[in-house]
Amino acid sequence: MEECCDPGQLFAMTKLNSPMGKNLWFDGEFLYSVTIDNATYSLFPQATPFQLPLKKCSVVGNGGILKKSGCGKQIDQADFVMRCNLPPLSSEYSKDVGSKTQLVTANPSIIQKRFQNLLWSRKAFVDSVKVYNRSYIYMPAFSMKTGTGPSLRVYYTLEDFGAKQAVLFANPNFLRDIGKFWKSKGIHAKRLSTGLFLVSAALGLCEEVTIYGFWPFSVDLHGKFISHHYYDNVLPDSGFHAMPEEFLQLWFLHKSGVLRMQLEPCEDPLIQSSA
């Protein structure tokens, strides 16, 4: 993983890896690029702002399998917790998914749908990210044309309010390299899921990776029906992501011991007593 993509350097847009005037090709568009100007350049941090290498990392997917898993404590024990797509972390879920966050991704489409692109009132957004405390919000600003505006606006908004969270912009070159890497392993989808991007990045950034909530099927290991996400059962658009194929690849990694995948409940007394 380090060989192909160098996450330590290229994970996010930084002043070091993206000098002014550099031409950036969007990884989610066909032949569309943007040149980094002074205004955009000033939004980047100097270098990747983590103490590398990170030791124990938890990558938390949003699969329904996390529901009633009781994995919260175990997730929080890691040094670095990554989450996908601004998931809810309210108290009713913290037992299963934990509460600690160091990095959370945000899809521009969520900003668009839930916060009207941050063009009108912005307080609702600022309040909603308060649960992530002092974490980084990782945004693919340069993947799709429509994502740039909302992503930059997240940055402006958080700075205006003096929020604790900081924004990191995903590096399209890194995302493209990861995409190529997995394509060569046989994942055929329009686009990789955020989860797989995060796991790939974690493998490059951390010494030890445990992943939770990665389970794309509608029944769990014991044949019980589960919801799509741990917080709702809204199914995604079909044909965009190839979740089962991604899962298979992660399963291979688990088998070969590169990462640890948590599928069973961690310490649920209810299950334990019934067993």
Binding site: L119, R122, G149, L152, R153, Y156, T157, E159, D160, F161
Partner: peptide, 9 residues
């Protein structure tokens, strides 16, 4: 007011 808003405020 599509970028920073604090300066205006």
């Amino acid at each position: 007011l599509e970028k920073w808003r604090k300066p205006f405020y």
